[in-house]
Each structure stands twice: as structure tokens, then as C-alpha cells.
Lab assay of single mutants.
Amino acid sequence: MAEAPPRRLGLGPPPGDAPRAELVALTAVQSEQGEAGGGGSPRRLGLLGSPLPPGAPLPGPGSGSGSACGQRSSAAHKRYRRLQNWVYNVLERPRGWAFVYHVFIFLLVFSCLVLSVLSTIQEHQELANECLLILEFVMIVVFGLEYIVRVWSAGCCCRYRGWQGRFRFARKPFCVIDFIVFVASVAVIAAGTQGNIFATSALRSMRFLQILRMVRMDRRGGTWKLLGSVVYAHSKELITAWYIGFLVLIFASFLVYLAEKDANSDFSSYADSLWWGTITLTTIGYGDKTPHTWLGRVLAAGFALLGISFFALPAGILGSGFALKVQEQHRQKHFEKRRMPAANLIQAAWRLYSTDMSRAYLTATWYYYDSILPSFRELALLFEHVQRARNGGLRPLEVRRAPVPDGAPSRYPPVATCHRPGSTSFCPGESSRMGIKDRIRMGSSQRRTGPSKQHLAPPTMPTSPSSEQVGEATSPTKVQKSWSFNDRTRFRASLRLKPRTSAEDAPSEEVA
């Protein structure tokens, strides 16, 4: 009796068929016929556990003709996506030579605008209408194809895939403007070719909807975003200037109206006075309405000098805001240009540092100066060695804690006790272990408590650290204090090793 083939788990290929790579489910599931010992083939499952149809090819690079078809379809799909992405970037994010197409579109729109203006002049109306009709045909074809291509290429973005995504893309403001202008152009052409009475009025009214094509030149909205950011950044200043200017306008108009309503027919109503105030304070000055009385002229002159300053403030605020924003954008561009080279330089330096163990090129690091100058660790070890030599091999803490019996001779020589300023008595072995921070803190506390006492003391002649007598400086308080830590004499004296002298005989010792 033939044995059933062993159940295979995992992703390994079956024996005897090495080139074939078959994806098997996580659990080997066989058909009921196979479990019962029949000759049925096992049921194939996909990666998600769903059964595959009987005629479906197995996924994998070596699955025969199905694999070749899959490779061809995958390559075609990649080319399709690449083309779609390229078209989308050309239309929505132009760079380099892609601006040539947008310059061509701008020339078409500008020519249409010029011809629309010439069509309103009686001398050039006939020729402009003929040229404009031909140009409209060209623009309908160009913009119609462009609109379709834009909607198709938007599928390269995830949020615009599918018919719902394309509809979302078509609802964008600039796409809506394109659609309105396209419909208006078709209506103008249809009305112009019919030759009816309505054609002339339709051409004159709907052609100027094509002015909206100038708005579509900035599809990404960079200028509007820049203007919005400047207004938002200086909103408080703008609101303040406009508010005060509006108050000056209504008060000036009302007072001039009261002064001129009886003697001047131009100011017969408050609305006429508001019109005069707006034209005057905005420095336009049509001259259609002028005050005639001396009181009205004085009020107009005073409020004009006051109001023009507030009406001119928004222009200066926006101008300075634009300058600052442009400078910030230039700085951001320079930062973006330098970020990648800086990151590459840091990575290269780290690779060199991690692979080169000698690091002989590091001549400006802490390790280099640590090898030249005595390190703080060596100074600490030197302090501890000196203290243990004086205390008979014991550390200062051990000397303080060691009990001394009554009447027993002390094995240590008597030492002079010292007192730290602002604290109780402490171990004499710690007097010379006072660090730089303690010395600086002690000097600052003395300056806070009594700076007036220092200038009363007789001035001391500054001497070099080499000429100081070591026996005289029994305490860190003898170090000359200065008002600034930048004094080199104080810094050098604080680094010197001060020996400890006994109370009975204080021989001067120098520590090399």
C-alpha cells in the first residue's frame, strides 16, 4: 500500500521540484479525499487562508506561464504608474523644462484676455472677434484635454484613487474654476456660431469669465498662502490700524457733515460726507466734493493729517511682513540645501571615528588635552595620597570615625582645627580638600554678606603664586578674593596644593 505523501509545513519547496517556489498556508490543510486516503489533490490556500480556484496559477517567480503573465502585467503596471506620476508632476508640480508648457498656457490665456479687451473697442471689434473665435476653439481643445489628463493623473495619489477620489480631486477650487471656464468657452462658441440675436450679448458677457483663467496660473496657491501667512502673522497690528482709521473716518465725516450741510449742497446727507471722507483719507482725492466753510476746511485738514497716518499703516505693516517672510523662506531654502550635506558629513565622520582606533588626527579633542595637561583624576589621586601619608595610611573619614581611648597616647600629631565659614567644625583632613566650587561659593557668600568690609582692609600687593609662602596660607580663606572669576591669580592660587600645619609646630611643606 502506497504511503501518503508527508504533510509539508512552511514555505519550503517540495523535494524533486527545486526551481518551484510555492506559497503554502501556515497550517497544512488537505482535502477530505486526501485525509481519507483517496487520490485527491490537496486544496490550495492563499496567504489569508482563502481557498484558491482550481485553475488559478500559483503565485511565485517560477510558476510557469502564469508567472510570465504576472511579470508582464507587473511591468506594465509599473510603467503605467510611472507615467501617471510623471504627468501629475508636470501639471501640478512643474520643475525644470516642465515650465515651458505652463508658459505656453499663460501666453494663450493672456492673448485671449487681450483680444477680449480689444473686442470692446469699436475700431478693432470685428478683427478681434474673428481672432478670438479661432483662439477659443484652440483653448477649448487644449483645456478640455488638460482637464481630463489632470483628473486621470491624480490617481497617482492615494487620496485621489478610484471614482470617489477623482470626484474629490474635481471638487478642488482650481478644478472648479477650470470647469466653469470650459463651460463658458463652449457656451460662447455655441452662441457665436448660431448667428442669432443673442450671440452678441452672450459673447460680450461670458467672454470675461475667461479672466478666471489668470487665476489658474498659480494652481498651488503659493501667492495666496504667502499673503495669508503675512496677514495672520500681523493680524493684531492690522486690526488696530484699521480700527483707529475707521473711527477717524466716521468722526471726521460726521463733523464735516454738521459744518457743511447748510452751506454746501455736496454734503446734503451723511452718506455724501462718508464718501468724501473715504476718498480723502485714502489719499485718492477725486475733487467732486470739497468743503466751502472755514470750519469745514479746518476739520477736514486736521482729520486728514490724523487719519492718513492710520490708513497708511497697513501698507507699511504688510510690506515689512512680506520682507520678513521672504527672508525666512530664503533662510529655509539654505537650511534645506545644507541639511543633507551636513548629515552626510556627520555620518562619514562617525564611520571614520568608529573604524580608526588610533585617531591620531583628533588634535583638538579632550583626549588630546588630557594627555598634555594633568587630568583631574590625577589631581584627586594626588590629594588622596598626600592625605593618607599624613594620616598614617588612613583616609580622612576613617580618621574622624576612629575612637580614641581616654589616657591613651595619640598616634597622630595634634592638628589645628579649622572652621569653614557658615558651618560647624569639620575634620581637619578636609581643609585642604576644598575644591574650586567651594572656594568660589565661599567668595560669593563673603561678597553678599559684607562687601563694604573688603574695601576697608589695607590693599594687598598682588604677587605671583611662585613667590607666595606656603606656610602662610594655612586656610583657603587666605586666598585673595576677587569680584570676578576671570582673575588668573585667584584661579592659579585655588589650584595650588595647600599643606596642613599642626598647632604646635607648623613646618612648611611643599608638595611638588
Rank of each mutant, 00 (worst) to 15 (best):
K325M: 05
M214T: 00
L108P: 01
R220C: 10
V181A: 12
K225N: 09
F106L: 15
E136Q: 05
A184V: 08
A271T: 07
S116C: 02
W294C: 05
L133H: 15
K333E: 12
Q210E: 14
D178A: 02
L133I: 02
I189N: 08
V215G: 02
L238M: 07
M214V: 00
T193P: 13
P173S: 10
N196T: 08
V149F: 11
G221S: 10
A191E: 04
R219H: 09
F198I: 09
I211S: 03
L113R: 13
G192D: 08
V188F: 03
K225T: 05
L209Q: 12
V231F: 08
Y257F: 14
F208Y: 14
S269C: 13
V181G: 09
W224L: 03
I105L: 07
L203P: 13
I211T: 05
P173T: 07
G245W: 07
F251Y: 15
A271G: 06
L133R: 00
M206V: 04
G221C: 10
I180M: 08
I177N: 15
L209P: 12
Q125H: 11
I197L: 06
F106Y: 11
D218G: 02
L212Q: 01
K236T: 13
I211V: 02
V188D: 04
A191S: 05
T223P: 00
R213C: 01
Q210K: 01
E136V: 09
T223I: 03
D178E: 03
F143Y: 14
L249V: 07
F310V: 08
C175F: 06
K236R: 07
F208C: 11
K225Q: 09
R204C: 11
M206T: 11
R219L: 03
S201F: 01
R219G: 14
R216H: 00
F310S: 06
N196S: 13
E136G: 15
Y232N: 15
V109I: 03
T240P: 06
T278M: 10
Y243H: 12
R213S: 12
A271S: 02
L115P: 04
T223S: 05
S201A: 05
E136A: 12
V109L: 06
S253T: 04
R213H: 00
C156W: 09
Q194P: 01
V188L: 02
N196Y: 13
M217T: 11
F208S: 04
T120I: 06
A184D: 10
I197F: 01
I239S: 04
K172Q: 14
F110Y: 09
D178H: 08
L133F: 03
L133P: 00
C175R: 00
I177S: 10
D178Y: 07
L107F: 10
V188G: 12
G228R: 14
K225E: 13
T290S: 11
R213G: 06
H102P: 13
L133V: 04
K172E: 15
L113V: 14
C175Y: 08
R216C: 01
F254S: 15
L132R: 02
